[in-house]
Design a protein around this nucleic acid. Structure first.
Lengths: 350, 350
DNA sequence: CGGCCGAACGTTAGCGCTAACGTTCTGTAG
DNA sequence: CTACAGAACGTTAGCGCTAACGTTCGGCCG
């Protein structure tokens, strides 16, 4: 269908009165062409509306200057991450394509890499959860960088420091005087959720606070989950004075439950989230949370990938980027009176 | 780099003891091969891990069974739309790639189509606003379907019926007895925003309600814009009893402002949004709104595109899909007393 | 002034595939 | 028994490009 619309390199070369190869060199900015001729060719190519055919390019084994990102599109941050990656890629004169992974697809899309490697030079895989098919990807002979795969990844990876972020969030609550701190967890399927939970356990130990299994409730990373988890926490005889929710969404669910119970945030209960989703600074109360370094993750992953593409044998690097505590309205110091009570009851931390 | 890892068709053919072309026919499910041989070849190809090289395929002018979607990734619904499109495409044995348009990029990405046509069989363009570069796309010789481009599109297009949706929303308010209805608008840059505004003007005329310019305030499609718009409306001497916000986000902004002013929704003021974003059914109050037929839009656009790809000369079809009024908690009938007052003041509508 | 070197170009082969046309062979009509 | 149609296969050319070699030619050295 519709042929002969775009000129080929051969046609450009003919018009320019040079050989095909000279035109190729000129266009790909390679040595072996005199400056005048190069300029000539480029001008003519432009006038003729020449566009390289990447399919042909790829077929010969050359780079196409396209990268791909494989991601579950509606996961909280993917769109921000992708936007960042696109910008970084474009700045490096690369184009970026996205493959949208079907939601919770059971089938390994290892074949997706088989497809992509025929088109692009490298792939970034955003897989928030551990997956069997990561291994199936190892056989696809194309540079791969993973995001959010934790430190066990076979590929070079970039990830936010979920563990340190969790520590900061909890440290913040402890500094505000809280001793009875609950944790609303996410799916353990997610590497990030596990790291945040680990931070919770470790900080208790570190601050010499007792671990109460009643204070750890599953929140499913969802608003509903957070809501129900908070209800369970509020029903406890000795309810917590602060809650660390594994993500912002469930934090807001918890806040809704707390308010519905006639209590206030942060007056009665302080709440810290994780992620710093955009509305965290707009919804009331503005949420104290942990910000993920999305822009840095985007930049790091693309740069890492491009290095691999360029053949720089970057060792299987694991880049972990720092998170940041953002203090807003949803947390406050434990009231003096209750603080004293707590101190008596629990014993003074560290 | 890394060559000779995947077998080529020629190798498969050799192992199967047939010619290259016979193997090609077998794999592409074309006539001219005996059933036994076909089965044989397919089995061997599978065992050898053969994967068609789409770059080579495309180079010969054949279909690659890949489509692309060009979209601004973080626009409200794109992710839902894309998910739906991906599912439909996969069901038709097509793969789908996404090109993430830089946010409010001034540069025409017409060149993007030049890139994509070398790789895919057709493109869906999601452009919520009118754009000059749509025309620049007309020259790319590849099937294109647009979404949300309104009826002036040069390409076959699929869109939600924003006008009818606006009418339903306002009709709902009128049926509840409201006469003094405000409109919080979006950017006029967006086709959808313009259609919703038009519905507002038309319904006033239709219901013989007076048009009061004070009741039409820009809300920018954002939470903040909705918040500020509502503040202006509340400051009016004769404030509205109902608000139609051009999208859910600004509706929630408006609700926040109303509550901050010590009024209740829907007790004092009813609010209708547009879009039915996921949290509209979760946030308090659950929002009465207009649902966009995203799944249908996804299905229609992909099917339309695949028809074009198949060469069926679908005329430049403009598909407009119906929206749906979802009544939840944010609207209620105007209180009898006030209703009477209003009736006297304004005159009875239609 | 011959020889040699390197920059500037050209030619050839082939990436993996398919369209288009050849070839072979079997069955059947005349 | 010949002719011939049609299914089942094979061969050839070429899609647009680049790697890997040729070729040419001006300049510089001994």
């Amino acid at each position: 269908m519709m042929k002969r619309q775009y000129p080929t390199l051969a046609e450009v070369a003919k018009v320019a009165g040079v050989s095909l190869m000279t035109a190729s060199r000129a266009i790909n900015n390679r040595p072996g062409v005199s400056p005048e001729k190069r300029e000539d060719i480029l001008r003519i190519a432009d006038e003729m509306g020449y566009v390289v055919n990447r399919a042909a390019q790829k077929l010969t084994g050359a780079r196409t200057r396209i990268i791909a990102v494989v991601a579950e599109l509606h996961t909280p941050f993917t769109s921000d991450l992708l936007l960042g990656m696109g910008a970084v890629a474009r700045a490096a004169d690369y184009e970026m394509l996205v493959y949208s992974l079907p939601v919770r697809d059971r089938r390994p899309p290892g074949s997706i890499l088989d497809l992509l490697r025929q088109i692009v030079d490298g792939v970034i895989v955003i897989l928030p959860y551990e997956s069997d098919y990561l291994e199936s990807m190892a056989t696809a002979h194309i540079p791969v960088v993973t995001i959010e795969q934790g430190t066990e990844s076979v590929f070079p990876s970039v990830t936010a420091d979920n563990y340190q972020g969790g520590l900061s969030a909890l440290q913040h609550l402890i500094e505000l005087g809280h001793r009875r701190i609950a944790f609303i967890s996410g799916h353990d399927r997610l590497t990030s959720a596990r790291d945040r939970r680990r931070a919770y356990h470790d900080i208790l130990a570190q601050a010499r606070l007792p671990y109460d299994p009643d204070l750890e409730v599953d929140g499913d990373f969802s608003r509903k989950g957070g809501f129900e988890a908070a209800q369970k926490l509020l029903a406890l005889a000795d309810r917590p004075t602060a809650i660390f929710a594994a993500n912002d969404i469930s934090a807001y669910g918890a806040i809704a439950a707390i308010r519905e119970a006639g209590l206030s945030v942060p007056g009665d209960i302080s709440v810290v989230g994780f992620d710093d989703i955009p509305i965290a600074s707009q919804l009331h109360p503005q949420l104290t949370t942990i910000r993920q370094p999305l822009q840095q993750m985007a930049r790091a992953s693309v740069n890492l990938l491009l290095a691999l593409v360029a053949g720089l044998d970057a060792p299987s690097e694991q880049i972990v980027l720092p998170t940041q505590l953002i203090v807003r309205e949803s947390t406050t110091a434990l009231k003096a009176k209750r603080k004293k009570e707590e101190a008596v009851k629990v014993g003074v931390g560290r």
